[in-house]
């Protein structure tokens, strides 16, 4: 089974990030492999170890991003491809997906894994757009994955409020993964050394067959207007009513005072699910 994993070189969220003059002050900050993507690489390597095949990591990023590719090679990916051109600077999720689609089209794959989102921008778009461009099914937020011999794939998806959904499908497929899927291994030092020696293929705009107006800020569908540090969330302290019994109070404390929200699963063909959803949105006055 051949697997492609799309990885991103991101600013570590574990540093104290300061926004100065509308931009991030990069002094003292560090770049890492996007943790969601690293999980995807680990899962791909595990699948390779049980099913055979090859794992290729693809990364859109400048020369520094090679570090990210080498980290992936160290935990067991076989090949690395870096896609970069100065014209790519400022690309949004859509353009990134375009670039990735150009690169992956020519590769043989059974499965494409992407992180559910990038830890820096938290967009969560690229994987889904890429699948659309490649014309393959996409499943998002996978937390458990098993592939049986005939290419049947069973995926557990993470939904809100701790709910899970089990989906069955077949390859080819694009899956975006949550960090709960697997814990990336700590590489043996020999593997780190071997990864340093491996050739990382690089492809630029021309070799990908893209034009300047398709990429960078020009090709992007979104733009950054302003950057600001997030306001810290207020911590709600929940005090259960003293009328309750001790057992109920403990239960209330452990739930953080939240009650389970009513939810409904829509089932059926995509068309009927879509029309039910549309009707709901209209009925509840979300849509005119």
């Amino acid at each position: 089974m051949n697997i492609i994993v799309c990885v991103k070189h991101v600013l570590s969220a574990d540093c104290a990030i300061k926004v100065e003059n509308g931009a991030i002050n990069k002094r003292g900050l560090h770049y890492v492999v996007n943790p969601y993507d690293l999980t995807a690489v680990e899962e791909a390597v595990r699948l390779k170890e049980s099913h055979g095949g090859e794992v290729t990591v693809v990364c859109v990023g400048p020369s520094e991003a090679e570090e990210t590719i080498r980290s992936c090679l160290a935990i067991g990916a076989d090949k690395g491809i870096r896609l970069w051109d100065d014209a790519f600077e400022g690309s949004d999720s859509y353009v990134t997906a375009v670039i990735l689609a150009q690169a992956t089209k020519s590769l043989k794959y059974d499965l494409i894994l992407c992180g559910q989102k990038a830890a820096d921008t938290e967009g969560g778009q690229t994987g889904t757009i890429l699948a659309e461009m490649l014309g393959i099914p996409v499943i998002t937020a996978g937390v458990e994955l098993s592939v049986s011999e005939g290419g049947k794939v069973t995926i557990q998806r993470e939904l809100e409020k701790g709910n899970r959904e089990v989906v069955e499908t077949t390859i080819p497929l694009l899956l975006t993964v949550e960090t709960g899927l697997s814990k990336p291994r700590y590489p043996k030092l020999r593997a780190v050394f071997a990864a340093r020696k491996k050739q990382v293929e690089t492809r630029d705009m021309k070799s990908l067959g893209l034009a300047p107006e398709q990429v960078g800020i020009k090709g992007s569908k979104t733009m950054i207007e302003a950057l600001s540090p997030p306001k810290p969330k207020l911590k709600k302290v929940f005090t259960p009513s003293s009328d309750l019994s001790a057992e109920e109070r403990i239960a209330a404390l452990m739930s953080g005072g939240m009650t389970r929200k009513e939810s409904e699963f829509l089932e059926g063909s995509p068309d009927s699910v879509a029309s039910t959803l549309l009707k709901f949105l209209q009925d509840e006055k979300f849509l005119e």
């Binding site: 574990d14 104290a16 300061k18 003292g28 890492v32």
Partner: peptide, 17 residues
Amino acid sequence: LRSIEDIGHPWRGSALS
């Protein structure tokens, strides 16, 4: 160890610089 590798110190999660 990962914290030192990633961000140059072992106190991941510190809000300080």
